Computed example of a mutant assay.
Amino acid sequence: MASATSDTGRRRVVGIVVALAVVAVAIGIGLLTAQRGRPPSSAQPPVTSLVPMTSSPTPSGSRATLPPLPSPTPSVLPTETETTEAGQTPVEPPVTVPPDTVPAQPGTTVPAPPAPFPPSLRGQDLTLIPDAARVVALTFDAGANAAGLPKILSALAAKGVPGTFFLTGNWAETNPAGVGQIVAAGHQVGNHSMTHPAFTSLSDALIAQQVRGAEQAISAAGADPRPFFRFPYGERDTRTIAAVNDLGYVAVRWTVDTLGWKGTSGGISTQMVTDRTLTALTPGEIVLMHIGSNPDDGSTLDADALPQIIDRITAAGYGFVTLDRLLGR
């Protein structure tokens, strides 16, 4: 009897344990099912999208957003045939800067673009002003000193006559005040090379150096020599004329050389200077005189003869012009 009672107790205990185990398994299955039905508490895995994201990170659990479409802005739209990809800022086309407008390096001078002259003047070293009326152009070369400049400027001012002054670069550097006086008086300025060499013995590259060097020196002194050029010693040929034309200059020679530069030591007088000028008088005459003094006797015959030359040309019924007349001015 006691043994049967003990067996019954053991069966009850086993039954209770089994029942509890079944309940625990059921609870576990329920919890697992619920967990699978909602997102875990940790951060979501990254979302891969073919649509570009905005620059700011997408908050967890929110949708990725498209970047805003660019608003068309006429002021920055591409020009000509340029195109841009959607969403990118249009790129303005590159600006081409003419070589002559490129800023100079510190301490250097870049000349302005060559001044134009009529194509009909190419290939010439002019000895007359073409198709001119009864007018004369008085021209003065400056390559030595400035001894005769005060007398020349005074005579021109007193008679109300314009002149054209061909300056070397060296003269302009040595006499910047003289350049200023010439310009202030309203006279024309031309280019007479940098150092006054014979051009026919120079290469095209050296010709360019001489012409541009003088241009820069004269410009630095306050004058613009373009577009008139006079060959030193009058030495020129077809090649050298073409070279200065290509540099933006028309070559101007003379109708008559007064020979005043020879001085009294060379057998010249002021009367001879005047007579030579009047003997060659013709419409469009270009007269060659010099500013500097003779190196041997110190005479300035052209400056001394100038008042009489002006009076006699005026009496002959002629007027005076600068070489601007060649440009139709």
Rank of each mutant, 00 (worst) to 15 (best):
A303C: 10
A132K: 04
S299I: 06
P283V: 01
G260H: 02
G148V: 08
A146F: 10
P46M: 03
G9Q: 12
Q271I: 00
P52T: 11
A4K: 05
G163A: 11
L126C: 04
A86Q: 14
V18C: 12
R10A: 10
N170E: 11
G148L: 10
A315D: 05
E285P: 01
P118L: 03
S201T: 15
S60F: 11
G107M: 06
L20M: 15
Y233E: 06
A221D: 00
P150N: 03
S62P: 01
D297A: 00
V161Y: 02
P283L: 05
F228G: 02
A220V: 05
L167V: 00
I268V: 15
T164E: 07
T274R: 10
A137P: 09
Q216W: 04
G15C: 08
P118H: 04
P68Y: 13
T84S: 03
Q188D: 12
V250K: 01
T96N: 09
D141N: 12
D131F: 04
T8F: 05
A21V: 15
R12C: 06
F320A: 01
A198T: 14
F165W: 11
K151L: 12
P113T: 08
Q181S: 13
G260Q: 02
V25C: 14
E215H: 05
A303D: 00
T127E: 06
A137H: 03
V95K: 12
M53A: 15
D257R: 01
T54W: 11
V189P: 06
A205P: 07
V76L: 11
F231T: 08
G284E: 01
D7A: 11
M289Y: 05
A205S: 14
S55G: 13
T174Q: 15
T89F: 12
E92C: 07
V211Y: 02
S49F: 08
L288A: 03
A137T: 09
P72M: 11
G143A: 15
A24P: 07
H290L: 07
R253T: 05
A242K: 09
H290Y: 10
R10W: 11
I182A: 09
T48F: 12
P67Q: 15
I313C: 10
P72F: 12
L50H: 12
F231I: 02
T314W: 02
E173V: 05
V97S: 06
G319W: 05
I291Y: 02
L156E: 00
T240V: 03
S269A: 03
F140S: 00
G180Q: 15
D304A: 13
T96H: 06
L323R: 07
K151Q: 13
P72Q: 10
T195W: 10
R239C: 04
A198E: 14
G298Y: 00
E235A: 14
G267W: 03
R312W: 03
A34H: 07
H187R: 08
L327T: 11
